[in-house]
């Protein structure tokens, strides 16, 4: 992880002509994009535009049918999700996917799974290295718990928490892996104004203090336009626009995708 904030410093993630089909449905076709080191990169678009499919390809859950994805110069097009996690990509899910039976603390400890090593036998004995490892990682996790203001909830089962808090715990679990690229799938969906503001603050802090590159999908245009360095717009599986928030806002193709073409507008 680097300490420099803001954009600049090379390409973190390079997507080249990525495409994904599900049967006859072309979910993503020929999408290319560069995510710069240290930036906040937003992917927006109407429902069914292929945003989550793209994110699933980056995190290795799907593999692109065509094209390639490079992370820090490595080709990760065919790499499995667990190896991709080990390379330093973490993500959150659109529909919360916490380990509901576990406490908040254990969920975050789980996030550090890839950074830990102890095997069956040393865990069984819980002696020496395994014990030291647990305690050392606990210290890191506590920093994140403090950062996300979850201190009084650390021993609460995550399934018992309110929706907004669950979203925050999920962010914490992703952060616990100390990723260099963080993928957020609609981190503010379904939140009230206050929760949204908190979440934006956390996202900005992560980006600025830890220099983590962030790629996020979000429907709240106000948030996207405020915090992103670059925005990519997708519609019907294709990239229709990309640029700074101001450039995207002015692009007529984006307005068409969201509001329909100007010809029809008068009729409607």
């Amino acid at each position: 992880m680097n300490d420099t904030a803001g954009s600049g410093g090379g390409v973190k993630l390079k997507i080249q002509g990525a495409a994904k089909n599900f049967g006859g449905v072309r979910a993503v076709s020929n999408v290319s994009a560069d995510v710069q080191e240290g930036e906040i990169f937003a992917i927006i678009g109407p429902n069914g535009a292929g945003k989550t499919t793209l994110l699933n390809m980056i995190s290795g859950f799907y593999h692109p049918d065509e094209g390639s994805i490079h992370f820090e110069g490595h080709d990760i097009s065919t790499t499995g999700p667990s190896e991709i996690a080990a390379l330093g990509i973490a993500r959150t899910f659109q529909n919360i996917a916490l380990f509901r039976g576990m406490t908040v603390l254990d969920n975050l400890m789980m996030g550090r799974h890839v950074l830990m090593k102890s095997g069956v036998l040393s865990s069984f004995l819980y002696w020496g290295p395994a014990r030291r490892e647990e305690v050392a990682h606990r210290e890191k996790v506590e920093q994140i718990i403090e950062f996300l203001k979850l201190t009084d909830l650390r021993k609460t089962p995550s399934g018992a928490l309110a929706y907004g808090l669950q979203k925050r715990v999920e962010l914490g679990r992703a952060l616990a892996a100390e990723p260099s690229l963080l993928l957020l799938d609609e981190p503010m969906a379904g939140m009230n104004q206050e929760e949204k503001e908190d979440m934006v603050r956390y996202v900005l802090d992560v980006n600025q203090e830890w220099g983590t590159t962030i790629a996020l999908i979000e429907h709240d245009m106000g948030v996207v336009m405020d915090i992103s360095d670059h925005v990519m717009v997708m519609d019907m599986g294709e990239k229709i626009s990309q640029g700074t928030p101001d450039e995207v806002r002015a692009d007529h193709r984006v307005i068409e995708a969201y509001l329909g073409s100007t010809d029809h507008k008068e009729v409607a």
Binding site: M116, F124, A177
Partner: peptide, 27 residues
């Protein structure tokens, strides 16, 4: 001991959310 350390947690993770467990880096 097993259930309170790395291996045991990954068991529970698979029970609770197999997909998330995989994304998080569990084989």
């Amino acid at each position: 001991n097993l259930m309170r350390s790395r291996i045991g947690r990954s068991f529970i993770a698979i029970r609770d959310q197999e997909i998330a467990a995989e994304i998080i880096g569990i084989n």
